[in-house]
Design a protein around this nucleic acid. Sequence first.
DNA 1: GCCGTCATGTCACTATGTGTCATCAGGCTA
DNA 2: TAGCCTGATGACACATAGTGACATGACGGC
Lengths: 186, 186
Amino acid sequence: MGRWQPDAQGRLEEAAMELFDERGFEDTTVADIAERAGLTKRTFFRYFADKREVLFSGTVLLEETLVKGILGAPADAPPLDAIAAGLDAAAVVLEEARDRAGRRQAILAANPELRERELIKLTRLAAAGAEALRRRGVEEPAAGLAAEAGMAVMRVSFDRWAKKPRSQDLRKLLRDSLAELRSIAG
Amino acid sequence: MGRWQPDAQGRLEEAAMELFDERGFEDTTVADIAERAGLTKRTFFRYFADKREVLFSGTVLLEETLVKGILGAPADAPPLDAIAAGLDAAAVVLEEARDRAGRRQAILAANPELRERELIKLTRLAAAGAEALRRRGVEEPAAGLAAEAGMAVMRVSFDRWAKKPRSQDLRKLLRDSLAELRSIAG
DNA sequence: GCCGTCATGTCACTATGTGTCATCAGGCTA
DNA sequence: TAGCCTGATGACACATAGTGACATGACGGC
């Protein structure tokens, strides 16, 4: 057995989720999290830039999935259809971790500071989506607008999905919201 | 003359803008800001919930203006046209303070922490816009989507406007971006 | 069997943000 | 005029976030 327990980062993430759930984000200190994970405060800050980041390690995978989905759409698909393909791929990832996603979303919903962080992650997603569209030959400002609109659809759909314990599947919600957006703007 | 200099809040805001400009956000402490304004750290935190908020007092007026613009649109205007009316009204407010808005935007652009805060303010704007639409009889999810789409247009237009020292006027940029969005989604 | 690497710990320190009590000018009332 | 109340500010102490510098010690290679 190694000198240290394995998966320090995972233990920190799990400890943080538990504690945020039990006492709330504000009433949990970084030292508390580290202690439950059997580590120290200093080590926490080696894995996460700040206290909020402990809930956001998953966004890397989400971004990769989104981008691959957009790039994998048929070459002649219009921008918003390509975005839709990316969102659909991302939805699959989220659905695979539905439980965790639900717990996490409940914690985020309860804390303005965490929602703030979530927004900037979504903005990063939108930027990555716009970049993928540009690689497909879409010009600005169409690429940026389509990506932003896609994120609006994502946000609306995800909120509904996470809120209801037994809601419809996320992919269908996304399709419906997108259709709604088209009908508003069309 | 009163016991204290007038407009403590305004002095704090001005001192903060100057210092963030001179040394950057990170290298300016709250104590520095308070000192330049002739006050103490403790007083700073009586006016602003945290260090970032000192740059965001203007959003209250912006929100009121947006909402009034939406509610003032013709009763039979479709959702996105009502949003457009609100954005147009908000643009007037921003153009009246173009210099300050430009300085401020340069500071925000240089700091992820501040951009994070800006995003949540924009989300608040979107929520207020959606609420205004609902008061006009627009149902969900159309109200939320239209508001989010409007904010996407706002963000794209405002970035372009603030970036160029001598760009076109903001209202025209907004109209163009909105037309672009319609053509993508339609 | 020595040595370097690397994850973690220890310690010290600055800055944010908050609770609590003190101060004191100006206004109000008798 | 005296006394009192209010409200903005200051003074002080304190918990917590976040960081830099250096120490430790198991493991793996040579």
